[in-house]
Simulated scan of single mutants.
Amino acid sequence: MELSERQKEIIEIVKKNEPITGENIAGLLGFSRSTLRPDLSLLTLSELLIAKPKVGYFYNAHRVEPFIIKDIKEKKVEDVMSVPVIVSSDTSIQDTIIKMFLEDAGSIYITEQHHLVGIVSRKDLLKTVMGKMNIEEIPISMAMTRVPNIAYVLSGDSVEFATKKLLEHEVDSLPVIESTDGNGPRPLKVIGKFSKTLVSRLFLNIINNEI
């Protein structure tokens, strides 16, 4: 079962204000009681809320929390992804290092004409600096890991799938590639980042009941 945004709002209102009457819920949302009646009936029948006559509605944590976890697993990567840090392939290694620390990024994605061609991590850049290369003049393309040796996820993939891929490849982040129709080779347009930090934040939100 997939909840509507209004039903999710109702659950959040009840969680913060229990016990609360249907009239008060309707008032907080700006709807009439009759408009919300189908939503409240569904949430009560699903045992996500508990209704007590003459008292009001209560939040049923034992039912809601497993539902929230399932909801997160089925979310699309595009719903939770963060902003990627990107430089072009002709950017110098030195400028890439500066950008990495200014943005506090673990990895930087390298593009040509807005399409993914490589990736560098802090470890890659450390090795480059230790190799005594002329980092002011050499482009980052000389130090990056190149496509096709890069794991990535599509924007339409599920959070569960993307998390498994993070663990499978033992990386800190995965570039998110725009989903397209059709088969065969295609340019990889980077539109986001899916990272271990993001997964940790989702997990913490579950613990704190913030989702």
Rank of each mutant, 00 (worst) to 15 (best):
Ile93Gln: 02
Ser92Arg: 13
Ile20Lys: 00
Pro139Val: 15
Lys54Gly: 09
Arg63Met: 07
Thr145Phe: 02
Phe194Ile: 04
Thr35Asn: 09
Ile108Ser: 05
Lys196Arg: 11
Thr128Val: 04
Leu29Met: 02
Asn208Cys: 01
Ala61Trp: 08
Ala151Ser: 12
Lys127Ala: 12
Met144Thr: 15
Lys15Arg: 10
Thr180Tyr: 14
Val199Ser: 09
Glu5Asn: 14
Glu112Phe: 11
Leu202Glu: 07
Leu49Ile: 00
Asn149Ser: 03
Val14Leu: 00
Val87Ile: 11
Asp79Ile: 06
Lys8Asp: 11
Lys99Cys: 10
Asp157Glu: 08
Met144Ala: 15
Ala26Val: 00
Ile86His: 03
Ile72Phe: 01
Glu112Arg: 13
Val171His: 09
His169Asn: 12
Asp181Val: 00
Tyr57Gln: 00
Phe194Cys: 02
Phe101Ser: 11
Ile191Glu: 08
Leu102Glu: 15
Arg33Ala: 14
Gln113Asn: 04
His62Cys: 01
Thr44Gly: 06
Arg33Thr: 13
Gln7Leu: 08
Val64Ser: 07
Ile138Val: 10
Pro185Met: 13
Met133Lys: 15
Glu178His: 10
Met81Thr: 05
Tyr152Arg: 01
Leu125Val: 05
Gly182Cys: 09
Pro185Lys: 15
Gln113His: 02
Met81His: 06
Val120Leu: 12
Leu125His: 09
Asp95Pro: 10
Met142Asn: 14
Val153Ile: 01
Lys76Ser: 11
His62Glu: 02
Leu125Gln: 07
Val190Phe: 00
Gly27Cys: 00
His169Met: 10
Glu103Phe: 04
Tyr152Asn: 01
Glu168Val: 01
Ile86Asn: 02
Val199Arg: 06
Ser179Cys: 12
Ile20Val: 12
Ile10Asp: 06
Ala61Ile: 09
Phe194Thr: 02
Pro19Lys: 08
Ile140Trp: 14
Asn24Arg: 10
His62Asp: 02
Val64Tyr: 09
Thr96Arg: 13
